[in-house]
Design a protein around this nucleic acid. Structure first.
Length: 423
DNA sequence: TCTGGGGTCCTAGGACCC
DNA sequence: TCTGGGGTCCTAGGACCC
């Protein structure tokens, strides 16, 4: 009997949101479709159809029969917003995730634009993850459309380096949902993540230690999960473009340029080393709600509007905490100004809370510590330092903790005309 | 015609304690 | 009297990811 080797899979659903939409609207298959943008109502399409053809009485059972001509086009879109997901047909035109919708409309005006429907995506997310864990129980959740899976001890997990099991999981997901995914199997999470991108969509890619030099080293450093635009730019400036070039640099050189921790990490990952375990369960660290406005708002002129949204954000965070059974004691706010500069302020309470009024009060005090001369484009509320509601004692969490007076907490910032007193 | 929303982790300085 | 560490908590910002 041969020795088992560590086999880790990364599974990535293909164009997840867009593919889920295509299940509902199969008539759009093969067409460029983007998901994202506005706060359009779900019934918009049916509403417009029924306005045009009242005798037909379209219902939600008819979604697959809505004529393609009736779908909104990117060219018709005005306003803010970015693309969340684009179908492969749309990607041919150069549009992709995080691109502004207005820019995308220039590249592909005929693309169909659908609003996001998180409830639907969550449903399919739970479905595919349940299928994965039935076959391979050691799964790490990495968001709606991604998971890591430990193949090492699963029957079939060693055959052909994991290809047999990957194929089985792909088929089980496709049979149950009609959705495709791409899978990479490798000795660790780092390499599995890169491998899952090799054969998209609906692909499988198997990587062994020996593949490092031919398959990994030619790739751009940016392909490493954890090297983003900033680190990549710095590396480029130092003449390092590929992972192979990164691997040529010695440890001390990397530490000198990137610090002890990052330098040592880069030295490891360039050699394909990654010992991180599969994490089966994890507790949340913070919960937040934020919103970008349809137009930039001014703290004085739009005070009423801002105040109402602020209260609403606090209520939604409180509701999230209560629904999920958490309390927190660090309350914070986030502001984005019209020039995209972001500031945050937070304050830690002596006890835990999930109470909307308490959050609103403390967040309001945080807001007083921030300049409000410039117009704002985003406002957010965050609660951190979380604990499970059932794990904190009554003294740590007195139902509705309110500060006795405004003087007793936080630095005073009176006198500056650009701060405070607006909420 | 610019650039969402929800997260995690890291760094760095200051306060405070031992 | 002067000097020095280490450890933890809090706060602000930033990089990065999905």
């Amino acid at each position: 009997m041969s020795e088992k080797i560590r086999r880790i899979a990364h599974l990535d659903m293909d164009a997840f949101y867009a593919s889920v939409e295509l299940l509902r609207y199969p008539q759009l298959k093969g067409m460029p479709v983007v998901i994202g943008g506005g706060r359009r109502s779900e019934d918009d399409l049916l509403g417009r159809l029924n306005a045009a053809q009242p005798e037909r009485a379209w219902t939600s059972a008819d979604l697959a029969r809505i004529p393609v001509d009736f779908f909104p086009r990117l060219a018709d879109y005005t306003g803010r917003g970015v693309i969340t997901t684009a179908t492969y047909a749309a990607r041919q035109f150069g549009v992709g995730s995080a691109m502004g919708l207005m820019k995308a409309a220039k590249l592909c005006p005929q693309a169909i634009l659908l609003p996001v429907d998180f409830a639907q995506y969550r449903h399919y997310s739970r479905t595919f993850k349940a299928i994965v864990t039935e076959i391979a129980p050691l799964m790490e959740d990495r968001g709606v459309d991604e998971v890591y899976i430990d193949f090492t001890d699963v029957p079939g997990g060693q055959r052909e380096g994991g290809r047999v099991l990957a194929r089985l999981i792909q088929k089980a997901i496709a049979d149950a949902t009609g959705l495709t995914c791409s899978v990479g199997v490798a000795p660790n999470k780092l390499l599995a993540k890169m491998a899952s991108e090799f054969n998209k969509p609906n692909g499988i890619s198997i990587v062994f230690e020996a593949d490092l030099q031919p398959k990994i080293w030619p790739l751009a450093c940016r392909k490493i999960n954890g090297i983003g635009p900033k680190a990549d730019e710095k590396l480029q400036g130092l003449g390092v473009h590929t992972i192979g070039e990164l691997a040529e640099k010695d440890l001390q050189w990397l530490i000198d340029h990137f610090g002890q921790r990052t330098g040592a990490w880069m030295h490891d990952v360039a050699r394909g080393h990654d010992e991180r375990p599969i994490v089966l369960e994890s507790e949340p660290v913070s919960m937040s709600r934020e919103t970008s406005f349809e137009r930039d708002l001014h703290a004085v002129r739009d005070k009423a509007e801002l105040g109402a949204m602020f209260t609403d954000l606090c209520e939604r965070v409180a509701d999230d905490l209560q629904r999920k059974g958490y309390v927190g004691k660090t309350i914070g706010i986030k502001l984005k100004y019209e020039d995209f500069k972001t500031v945050t302020r937070d304050q830690t309470l002596p006890s835990y809370t999930a109470n909307a009024q308490t959050i609103r009060q403390i967040a309001g005090q945080c807001l007083k510590r921030v300049p409000l001369k410039q117009r704002l484009r985003l406002l957010g509320v965050r609660v951190g330092t979380l604990a499970r509601a059932d794990s904190v004692s009554a003294s740590e969490s007195p139902g509705e903790y309110l500060l006795p007076s405004r003087e007793t907490s936080g630095p005073s910032v009176s006198g500056d005309s650009g701060t405070g007193q607006l909420f």
